[in-house]
Amino acid sequence: MAQHSSKGARFQAVTANRLSDGEVVYLTADNQWAETFPAADIADGAAAGEALLARALPADFELHVLEPYLFEVLQDGAHFKPASVREIIRAAGPTVRLDLGKQADAKQES
């Protein structure tokens, strides 16, 4: 299973890709899969991170999502943001096509 957190990571979230279309999704506090990063449940500490990942692994989830994994997030004031360039891009879309991916959907909604 892919790991995208550093050993010392304090805050983490769980992400995966949706089976039907590959869309990036995040595990929420009520064990749903949301399309946007702000809806992700955030774990504080290594043990909470493991517990969060364990919630993403039940077999019935395999019908909906692929390869869930933990990734590091950083606190930014009252909000959180992905720590790595990779997860920033997954959360937004290709940096070379701002008309595509979640960033485009966000633009349409605003």
């Binding site: 279309d21 590959g22 879309g93």
Partner: peptide
């Protein structure tokens, strides 16, 4: 069969790859 759950991802992945289907960052 994958969508219905009859095939696991472990079983399906090599089959989709043999048909040129990869999973990338944002989509297939």
């Amino acid at each position: 069969r994958r969508v219905s759950g009859e095939l696991s991802e472990d079983a399906f992945k090599p089959l989709r790859l043999m048909n040129g289907v990869y999973l990338q960052l944002h989509a297939y």
